[in-house]
Simulated assay, not measured.
Amino acid sequence: MTTRYAALLRGINVGGHKKVPMAQLRALLTELGHSDVQTYLQSGNAAFTSASGAEDALAEELGAAIEKRFGFGVDCLVRGGPYLRAVADACPFPAAELEAKQLHVTYLSAPVTADRFAGLDQAAFLPEEFRLGDRALYLYAPEGLGRSKLAEALSRPALLSGTTATTRNWNTVVKLVELTRD
């Protein structure tokens, strides 16, 4: 049995650093034995089909292959299509009423609990808000991620320590769901 997955690479092709051309990423995933490989944008989103059912093992394999091929490490998350659909469906904000730049999902390598964020005064950041989901953090930032003070606060190492985190805007969240449909 095969499954459609998305690989989410963190921090590549940003400001000319950690360059991973998408054609080379597609070739690398194919060399690793995956099929039906597609990429989306230049920011490290790839969809592929694999017989493996172990997301963490797939992410580790891809991260090691990228380091070997390109000479630098990259944090990778791999998530199956059903999980990506569930994250999109569970969005606590009215996605259909918002601009894509206003809504983001930070995918996390492990679950985090609300107590981790207890010291964060959410009222100080209004109208920006966040909610936790299943290995995901939803962020509503009316002025966009680049101007978000809450996003900056949430990215503090103490809040997400021990987890790999990578953020996508709502357009990308929706596209990843489409790309990983069986």
Rank of each mutant, 00 (worst) to 15 (best):
V105M: 09
Y138K: 11
M22L: 08
L58A: 07
R116F: 03
M22Y: 11
G162K: 03
E55T: 11
L28S: 01
H17D: 05
A27W: 04
T2G: 11
Y107G: 12
L41I: 15
S155D: 15
P82G: 03
V20C: 07
T3A: 14
G144R: 04
L179E: 00
A153V: 04
G44D: 02
Y140I: 04
D134E: 15
R135F: 13
D36N: 13
A90F: 12
A123W: 05
M22G: 08
E31P: 05
E99Y: 13
A110E: 15
R116V: 01
N169Y: 02
M1I: 05
A141F: 05
G119W: 10
K18G: 00
F130E: 09
C76I: 13
E67M: 07
T113A: 12
V112H: 06
A124K: 11
R10N: 05
G73W: 08
G53E: 12
G15T: 01
T106K: 02
A54K: 15
L84H: 07
K149W: 09
L160M: 12
Y138T: 08
V37Q: 03
G81F: 00
G119S: 04
E61A: 15
S43V: 09
E60N: 13
L28I: 08
E31F: 06
T113P: 01
A158G: 10
G44W: 06
R4L: 00
E128N: 07
L150G: 04
K149Y: 04
M1K: 03
K18I: 06
T166D: 04
D121S: 09
R79F: 12
A54Q: 15
L150C: 09
S148Y: 01
R79W: 06
G71V: 03
P21T: 08
L103F: 04
A64S: 12
S52T: 06
N45T: 02
